[in-house]
Amino acid sequence: MNLPPDLYGRPRADRSWGFATKALTAFEVVTGLLKSEPPVRPVNDRQIATIVRQTVVEAEDVVSLRLSAPDWGPLPAWQPGCHIDLELPSGTVRQYSLCGDPDDRFTYRIAVRRLGSGSQEVHRLAEGDVVRVRGPRNAFPLIDRRRYLFIAGGIGITAILPMVKAVTDDDWHLVYCGRSRESMPFLDEIAELDPDRVWIRPDDEFGVPVSGAELLTKALPDTHVYCCGPPPMIAGVRVDRPFGLHYERFSPPPIRDGRPFTVELRRRGLVLDVPPDRSALEVIREAVPSIGYSCRQGFCGTCRVRVLDGEVDEQREDGMMSICVSRARDGRVVLDL
């Protein structure tokens, strides 16, 4: 499998770390110690200006963008599963999977389905526009395994496609679902893959959405499943595949067993009530529409805010709170906002 040398998203220019990583990985594989995914790396705060070099309509309401440095210089290296934060002209920040070729060090490709305000702004970008990006970083790493099943739902193909192309010499299968073929991007590129390993499954051709059991038809006991798609798809797969499953959402996870709490924004003199079924980010956004956020899953770090008083759950690091997922332990938290 032709994977880049660094599974953690570090730049290849860091040769000393790259050598150490290779040596450690080789040792773990030989000794059988490589059992789990690497941890999510901390947020990479570097920001670079990029130019929109090309826009392409890939499917119904889906456009892809190719980005490069203004001088066409090399961009930071990335691996399958990586994403970037895109800072739009309005200041809105959104997170998108890189879906191009990791060996292409001079352009990034992303694809965006038109849904909310952020994606609508992406669709208005034109060739020559300048946007800033942060990253890349990897919260969905592709691990070297013997057998793979890739499952993509709609725009989830953006995270999955580079993985499939990286393992073409291995034992793999791909299931790609969507509302209709017209809504499914990159079907032309997928047509170049081994047709015996690919199942294109549009809902309108089958009459009903696909079930978790159908998605897992090719999953043998030693198969590792990589899934990216809407919450109902991921939920169905998780029910039928409680082990060997790696997944990435493109919407925030549901809040389960949440408790209400109060959040005080000290600098603004506001006290807000957060109900049990909503996040602090959702409530704060209503009072402070300009608050920054991106992944809404607790790992990108965009919405981390300093805690002045109160205890919060395990998302707190170094006195900070990820307001998209973290909650107050004792019913009240004071933030430096």
Rank of each mutant, 00 (worst) to 15 (best):
P141Y: 07
S290D: 15
R94W: 04
A280W: 00
G32F: 03
L149E: 10
V40H: 14
W172F: 15
L337D: 14
P195F: 00
A328W: 13
N44E: 09
V167D: 07
L98Y: 03
Q47D: 08
A139C: 07
R238M: 14
P141A: 13
R147N: 15
Y108M: 08
R134L: 02
A77I: 03
R197K: 11
A20I: 01
F19E: 15
S90T: 14
L337K: 07
T107Y: 02
D169I: 01
R296N: 12
I151S: 10
L33S: 10
V133R: 01
R266V: 12
V62K: 09
Y293W: 13
L161A: 04
V305F: 04
V263M: 00
I160Y: 04
T21L: 13
C295L: 05
M320V: 01
L142Y: 05
V198T: 08
P89N: 12
H224Q: 10
G207Q: 05
I160N: 01
L245W: 02
A13C: 06
G116N: 10
R316K: 08
R249G: 05
A191R: 12
L215H: 05
V133W: 01
R15D: 11
L216W: 10
P136I: 01
E192K: 15
P5G: 13
R146Y: 14
L3R: 12
R113H: 11
A111H: 06
P141I: 02
F150A: 06
G154Q: 11
R113S: 15
P141V: 02
F106S: 13
V52S: 11
F299C: 06
R146T: 13
K165W: 05
P42M: 04
I284W: 03
W199Y: 00
E87I: 12
F140V: 06
P209Y: 11
V164S: 05
R94P: 01
Q47M: 14
D85F: 07
S326D: 15
P42R: 12
L142C: 10
P102V: 10
S211W: 02
L308Y: 07
P232A: 11
R327A: 06
D318F: 06
R53Y: 06
G154E: 13
S211K: 08
S119E: 14
G118D: 04
N138K: 08
D170P: 00
R201D: 12
I110T: 02
D45R: 06
W72F: 14
L115F: 04
V30A: 14
I284P: 02
D129L: 06
V29T: 15
G310L: 12
S211H: 01
T217G: 00
G319W: 03
G116S: 07
I157G: 01
D309I: 00
T21S: 14
D6E: 08
R105M: 10
D240Y: 02
G331W: 09
S290C: 02
N138E: 04
L216E: 07
R201E: 03
I155S: 14
Y96M: 04
P11F: 03
M184A: 00
M1A: 15
S68D: 12
G292K: 14
D273L: 08
Q79S: 13
